[in-house]
């Protein structure tokens, strides 16, 4: 499979956008800094208040990629991927639901519709009037590669332009003891089926056997190692420093190879 990278958006502590990430991926030192709470411009104020932090993170990253592309949001299909898109909401719902007795189980309707895994893609499609196909992928720690595979197959099978977003946001205690996402990270990419004047690179993607877990990059804070989306920085490194390729874990024994072409 071959796809073309049109644009990139990045949000992580110390990496507020793609130029900042590109610098680090090119070898400049990483400097940790708190990430300002993302506030996507495309989300009306009322929706912004109703949405979860995960939704705002995913949308703000997507808006960066959208701004760098020459394609309208309405002309793209969408794949959103996350290992756990609703950790905070699940925690809040389970706290209420575990009280027992129907009077105590007063669930907020907004919280319930925010609890679905596809809430970020739902809010995005509403904000951008994007009416094409949208899929929401989960593959645990391998969610970045799985989402990229879902996106790439749709791009290649149907010659679609694609908005791909992968994100993790912190889980509250006690869920944090079981999936220790400590900081927010998100990567958004616009892909096309054919090269455009804005294309940054072509990527050849191939599924291969994998018998070892790739090490995390030296520059990356250990606090991000529970974030499935952080695996995407290996793929972005091929855009920042030409010549390399990336092996993104897709399962215990599978990888998605990314080779610039």
């Amino acid at each position: 499979m071959r796809i073309y990278v049109e644009s990139v958006g990045v949000l992580a502590p110390g990496l507020p956008d793609w130029p900042a990430a590109r610098a680090v991926l090119s070898g400049q030192p990483f400097v940790a800094a708190p990430l300002a709470p993302p506030s996507p411009a495309g989300l009306p104020a009322a929706e912004r208040r109703r949405s979860s932090p995960t939704v705002r993170l995913a949308l703000a990253a997507a808006e960066q990629a959208l701004a760098g592309s020459g394609i309208r949001a309405a002309d793209m299909a969408m794949v959103f991927a996350s290992a756990e898109a609703s950790g905070l909401i699940t925690h809040q719902l389970c706290e209420v639901l575990s009280r027992g007795g129907k009077e105590a189980r007063e669930v907020s309707p907004t919280q319930f519709h925010n609890s679905v895994h596809n809430a970020p893609s739902g809010y995005y499609s509403i904000a951008m009037a994007a009416t094409r196909a949208a899929s929401s992928v989960c593959r645990g720690p391998w969610s970045f590669a799985a989402g990229l595979l879902a996106a790439a197959t749709q791009i290649c099978a149907d010659a679609e332009a694609m908005m791909y977003v992968c994100y993790d946001s912190p889980l509250p205690f006690p869920l944090s003891a079981h999936l220790p996402v400590l900081e927010s990270t998100a990567i958004a990419m616009v892909f096309t089926a054919e090269a455009t004047p804005r294309s940054m690179a072509g990527w050849a993607l191939e599924i291969t056997g994998e018998d070892r877990l790739a090490p995390w990059p030296d520059w990356m804070p250990a606090a991000w190692w529970a974030n499935a989306s952080a695996r995407g920085f290996d793929a972005l490194a091929t855009l920042a420093a030409p010549g390399g390729n990336a092996r993104l874990p897709l399962a215990d024994e599978l990888a998605l190879n990314v080779t610039p072409c």
């Binding site: 679905v116 895994h117 596809n118 893609s121 949208a134 899929s135 929401s136 992928v137 989960c138 593959r139 799985a146 989402g147 595979l149 879902a150 599924i207 897709l250 399962a251 024994e253 599978l254």
Partner: peptide, 11 residues
């Protein structure tokens, strides 16, 4: 099975 796998969750 150990081919590619994933979960779709769109409600």
């Amino acid at each position: 099975l150990n081919g590619p796998a994933m979960t779709l969750s769109t409600a």
